[in-house]
Structures are given as structure tokens and as C-alpha cells.
Design a protein around this nucleic acid. Structure first.
Length: 317
DNA sequence: GTATGTTTATCAGCAT
DNA sequence: ATGCTGATAAACATAC
């Protein structure tokens, strides 16, 4: 009978695929994109297992980033020096884990080459991400302890069923989780298992989540209530997001850049007031994000027409 | 030189 | 049995 002590499991491999882990990291960032080094850092900070054999798993992770269409590369701007690009999630990669297991997707996300929009708009993708980042940072600056959640998901609140990005950490953790051994447990039902759910972690990050360490980002003052949609052990907002979301407002247009398309991005000015509007009108950041009014308001007229939901992507099997 | 990114190959496990 | 997905290894190219 394994004892759920921190040391007992701290080096145990988390029940998440590299795709899941990478998506968590990306989703946890205010701008929904991270450089490779930050993805590494995120994973190592939270999963002690990955503090060892770094060469091995980091190679795998890089492989996943390149190989899977659900990850898109966002070139750095000239004023963002550093190595490598930023990585983000494809807008339409929503339902890859709808089967409830984050070890194995039911379908592989694939972008159709025929997609007329996706590959040709790196600049828009970057603009969108930058704007999203600004919006979230504005929200963070304006709000209290719950703002991370608002910042991260305010785009979705206007969506009838609620924005559900299946890669949001809170979504990954909050939803019904299928244990690697086949044992399934529900997010609303605490189970004394090796991989407990956030609501049983409390603010202690104690014995309940052995393969995850708190990062200090977690606002422990916030109640860890699944129903309320608060915070997870990852230090990111917890909100019960359901799987299978098709419209993913916080995600940029995919860039599997045709070599010629990349340089255009480099010419982007740093602050960009333009927004990409994701398809449903209600998803417009200006309409759903109340905190956006105070800074750099984006006018609808400036909205680019590259709805993420219009992207022709498909989950192939 | 190192980090990053791409591609290919192989294998194991799971789903059908 | 077959196909798919994920993990891992490795070679190679490119950027910093």
C-alpha cells in the first residue's frame, strides 16, 4: 500500500503525456505562449520527476512540439531577444483529450494543409497573443487574488457554455481523471489515491499531490473549490472547464510557418492594438473582458478576421 | 559550444 | 490483428 507521502511519489512519473505537460505550461502563462526553456522550467518546477534525466525527456518534449500540430511556433519579436521561439497551442486542438485520459489522446490533432488561413498569418497570431497577454496583464494589475482566473478565462465567460480549453491546467486536473491503472475517480469526489485532485490538496500541496510541487504562484488564500473554479496545485486558476471545446479564444492562429511567412512577423511593432476575433462574436475580448476598458482598448473595427474556429483543422485517427 | 528545432525510426501500450 | 498514440533515441540543421 503506497503511502501518499511527498517523498514516496515525488519521483513518480506524472500521469500526463508530454503533450499535456506542455499544454499545461503554455496555458499557465499569461500570454498563452512560452519559450522552450520556460516550458522546461514549468515542468521541472511542478513535477520533480522531470528534474532528472533532463536530456531524455526534453528531447522528447521538443520532438512533441515539432511533431504535433497542436503546438504552434510564434517567432520572437526583435525586441524580445532570446533563443528559440515561443510556443503556443493551436486554437482548434480542443478536444484531443476528451476521453478523459491525459496520457493518451483519442485523436491526434492535425492541421489540414488546405487550410487557407492558418499557415499564412503568423503576424496575426503574434498580434493576437500579444493582445491577449496585455489583456491578462491588465487584469492582473487591476484585480485581486482571483484575477489570474479572470485574466486567463475572461474571454470565455461570454460563451454560452463557458470557455473550455481542454489544455488549461485547471481543466486537466479538475475534470474526471482516469488513473493510469484504469481506476477512474471524479473531481468532485476526493479519493485517497496517488494522484489526488486539487480540491483535496487544499492549500498545503501536501501529501495529496506527490508528483507535483507548489511553485509559490498559488494563491493559498483562494479557496480550492472545484465548483467555484479557483486554483489548482499548479498555481494557476482552477476552473471546471469541460472538454471538447471547439472555440478557443485565447489561442493564436497556428503558425507552421512557411519559411517565407516568418520574416513578416519580425516587422511587427511591439504594442499592437489589433485583435483577432475568434469566431463567435460574443468571444470578442472587448465584449467579454471587462477589465480591458482601462487600457489599450481595441476597437472592433481593428479586429482582424481570422476566427480560430474557422481554421480547418481536424482530428485524425 | 550550446540550445533549439526537425525529422526519422523503433518500440510498447491501448483501442478497435 | 491492425492501427494509432506516446515515449524514446538519434541524427541533423539552425540560431544564438
Amino acid at each position: 500500500m503506497p503511502r501518499p507521502g511527498r517523498n514516496t511519489y515525488s519521483d513518480q512519473k506524472p500521469p500526463y503525456s508530454y503533450i499535456s505537460l506542455t499544454a499545461m505550461a503554455i496555458q499557465s502563462s499569461p500570454e498563452k505562449m512560452l519559450p522552450l526553456s520556460e516550458i522546461y522550467k514549468f515542468i521541472m518546477d511542478r513535477f520533480p520527476y522531470y528534474r532528472e534525466n533532463t536530456q531524455r525527456w526534453q528531447n522528447s518534449l521538443r520532438h512533441n512540439l515539432s511533431f504535433n500540430d497542436c503546438f504552434i511556433k510564434i517567432p520572437r519579436r526583435p525586441d524580445q531577444p532570446g533563443k528559440g521561439s515561443f510556443w503556443a497551442l493551436h486554437p482548434s486542438c480542443g478536444d484531443m483529450f476528451e476521453n478523459g485520459s491525459f496520457l493518451r489522446r483519442r485523436k491526434r490533432f492535425k492541421v489540414l494543409k488546405s487550410d487557407p488561413l492558418a499557415p499564412s498569418k503568423p503576424a496575426e497570431a503574434a498580434q493576437y497573443l500579444q493582445q491577449q497577454g496585455k489583456l491578462r496583464l491588465s487584469a492582473l494589475a487591476a484585480g485581486g487574488p482571483h484575477l489570474p482566473q479572470m485574466a486567463a478565462y475572461s474571454l470565455g465567460v461570454s460563451q454560452p457554455s463557458g470557455f473550455k480549453h481542454p489544455f488549461a491546467i485547471e481543466n486537466i486536473i479538475a475534470r474526471e481523471y482516469k488513473m493510469p491503472g484504469g481506476l477512474a475517480f471524479s473531481a468532485v469526489q476526493p479519493v485517497p489515491a496517488a494522484y489526488p485532485l486539487p480540491n483535496q490538496l487544499g492549500s498545503s500541496l501536501g501529501p495529496g499531490w506527490p508528483h507535483v510541487y507548489g511553485s509559490g504562484l498559488l494563491d493559498t488564500a483562494a479557496p480550492l473549490s472545484m465548483a467555484g473554479g479557483d486554483y489548482s496545485a499548479y498555481g494557476v486558476p482552477l476552473k471546471p472547464l469541460c472538454h471538447g471545446g471547439q472555440t478557443l479564444p485565447a489561442i493564436p492562429v497556428p503558425i507552421k510557418p512557411p519559411p517565407a511567412a516568418v520574416p513578416a512577423l519580425a516587422a511587427l511593432p511591439a504594442p499592437i492594438p489589433t485583435l483577432l476575433t475568434n469566431s463567435p462574436p460574443s468571444l470578442s475580448p472587448t465584449s467579454s473582458q471587462t477589465v480591458t476598458s482601462q487600457s489599450s482598448p481595441a476597437t472592433p473595427s481593428e479586429t482582424l478576421t481570422s476566427p480560430a474556429s474557422a481554421l480547418h483543422s481536424v482530428a485524425v485517427h
